[in-house]
Design a protein around this nucleic acid. Structure first.
Lengths: 352, 352
DNA sequence: AAACCGGCTTGGATCGTTCTAAACTTGAAA
DNA sequence: TTTCAAGTTTAGAACGATCCAAGCCGGTTT
């Protein structure tokens, strides 16, 4: 007869312990755990009591091994320290969690080398899928070499390597950068502006190219000219943007408004304008891009394009889960919507 | 004789496939994989070629099952969207990664309920340890019920439930809040200030209590009085802080400087002062707490207490790894250092 | 010829679960 | 009495790795 005492055991309690403890087979206990309708009410109660008594915890790894399934999804992020990606990660984790998956995290810090290491480490844990926000300068061949052909891959935000986004053999999710700046530009035009600049960002970044394109399209659609001095480059930081603010007014006619590459740049531009005696939101209109937390509390609050990174995270998770469900479907290429958030920084042009 | 072609197999390739493919036993392949010195050079080469040829990927879950080890650590974060915790997470992941562990992420969004769910889900994956930054209002009993007695637990930043931090039966890592505001206050005193306020934060938050205490201690140590009007509460947001700025000047004598609960509050206070015609950093000195990214680019740049969240993350990882190495050591309670970062917002008092 | 050696390899059990097919139990139908 | 079915339970082989003890092999040594 089994003792009723619970010895201060060191080893973890397993199905076999439970089975022994209440005199049924391992198989039965397993059925109980998974809520099978096969098992008799009384046995179920007996087993459940024993589970609680021994403090059993399910070993999902063992189960996954046997069932040849996986309950995790890998999330590889180029820069977790960036609030945009942190929010994205939070969204991913939330959606994965409520689908019963657990998130395997890997942060690469924008290093393609580390990205390779992280990918090959994560892949050994057999995730059901991978969400990758690639480090700048990733090489697609190396990435798929590490990921293999078996694990569904969703690439977020940037395209891998040279490949143009829309015909990659993996799923992609990108922001609608063009539409974002298009909206922003239209908004300024609707307010009455005619001389609108595009401010900030690096020529070679793909997102900057797209955003500038959206601006150009909107200007063209409204038959407005773009003077050469209205395309001002700057590193995408506040400080650099503040320094470049003057460049907008080098030649006549000077713009009365600017669409900015992103919010950091927009906030920097505000600073730069202020220190030159102009009042953003009163005699110069500004629109940003990203809607970072700070933008709603700046002075003046910044009109911007919201990209809802947390929603993008959820969306990414859902896309990869869908793909896990249908591994043989053709690759999907999703463009996520963006929306214009009007605040006070976008004013009407000063009457001449 | 085995065919030399590689059939477009659907199943994953295992040790057995490799073994069959180059006519050795599974055991030998396993030895090769783990770089054992036992195996002959030529066999090793043969096996390695076959591994590459078939595109083998190691199944760490299976290995862990057999070896009764784990190669993951769970990281449960109360608010990933908060840059402080995002940085912390990045630090954790970095250190775990270079120790060969993978990070299981769980974000709780400050919900104790979700925290329970997340913990019991993660624990089923058998992490070697858990790093928990608890949601506000967590109940320690429920937490350890979910975590169990077998898995090392490190609690970061807040104490769980009612328990005072330093005698918990689990490891803890907290910021040296008191010392931080003590440093900040000493800094202002050294600059010549005598009337120094403590601004922002909620009375009931434990971190606010500690920070206020550090301020009070420093004032006392310098034999400076603290007038009742100099302790101003406010929600820890920029907006609220801006609104409360006036409260500092309700009575005479008004303070000439303020130690703030955190950077958000400090930045808000700057805003509030500016809109009242005062110039922070010139006629009023301000010190913040946290050193968020924005603080270095505000106008004026904010003097603050840096807590280096990424370093804290690394430290947390190292603590939990140490504990994994020595499960039977007594619980450790670590207080992380903070440092004063002097920028322009802390000026000398205006000469009277 | 037997015993022993070092260097290398291996069969088979094992980790904790799930799956399959078969076996048990009742009780009712034939 | 046998037969069958529905309802429960179970033995034992997986899953993909590792560990252990034992084995093989060619060459000394006794």
């Amino acid at each position: 007869m089994p003792m009723h005492s619970k010895p201060p055991t060191r080893r973890k309690v397993t199905l076999a312990d439970i089975a022994a403890g209440c005199d049924v087979s391992r198989a039965t206990v397993s059925l109980v755990l998974r809520g099978s309708p096969l098992v008799n009410k009384r046995t179920r109660a007996k087993v459940e009591a024993e589970l609680k008594r021994q403090g059993y915890v399910y070993n999902r790894a063992a189960a996954n091994l046997r069932r040849r399934t996986s309950s995790s999804v890998a999330l590889v992020i180029n820069d977790l320290g960036n609030p945009f990606f942190a929010e994205f990660a939070a969204g991913v984790d939330e959606a994965l969690g409520s689908a019963g998956y657990v998130t395997l995290l890997g942060n690469t810090g924008e290093s393609p080398e580390r990205q390779q290491a992280v990918l090959s480490s994560l892949i050994e844990h057999g995730p059901a899928g991978i969400i990758l926000s690639p480090a700048e300068g990733s090489d697609d061949a190396r990435v798929i070499a590490a990921v293999g052909r078996h694990t569904p891959l969703l690439v977020f935000n940037r395209s891998l390597g040279e490949a143009s986004a829309d015909d990659a053999p993996w799923d992609t999710l990108v922001l609608d950068n063009e539409r974002g700046t298009h909206l922003a530009t239209e908004h300024l035009i609707a307010l009455g502006h005619k001389r609108i600049a595009f401010f900030g960002g690096h020529r070679d970044s793909s997102s900057c190219r797209q955003r500038r394109q959206g601006y150009l399209d909107a200007m063209k659609a409204a038959s407005l000219a773009v003077a050469p001095g209205w395309l001002v480059e700057s590193a995408p930081t506040r400080l650099e943007a503040a320094r470049q603010a003057g460049a907008l007014f080098n030649r006549d006619p000077a713009p009365t408004a600017a669409v900015c590459y992103n919010d950091a740049v927009a906030l920097g531009l505000m600073l730069g304008l202020t220190s030159r005696g102009r009042r953003p939101g009163e005699d110069f209109a500004i629109v940003g891009f990203d809607d970072i937390a700070e933008s709603s509390v700046s002075v003046p609050p910044l009109t911007t394009i919201a990209v809802d990174p947390r929603d993008r995270g959820r969306q990414a998770a859902e896309l990869v889960l869908a793909r896990i469900g249908h591994p043989d479907m053709e690759a999907t290429h999703t463009t996520a919507p963006v929306r214009l958030v009007v605040r006070d920084s976008s004013c009407r042009p000063a009457s001449p």
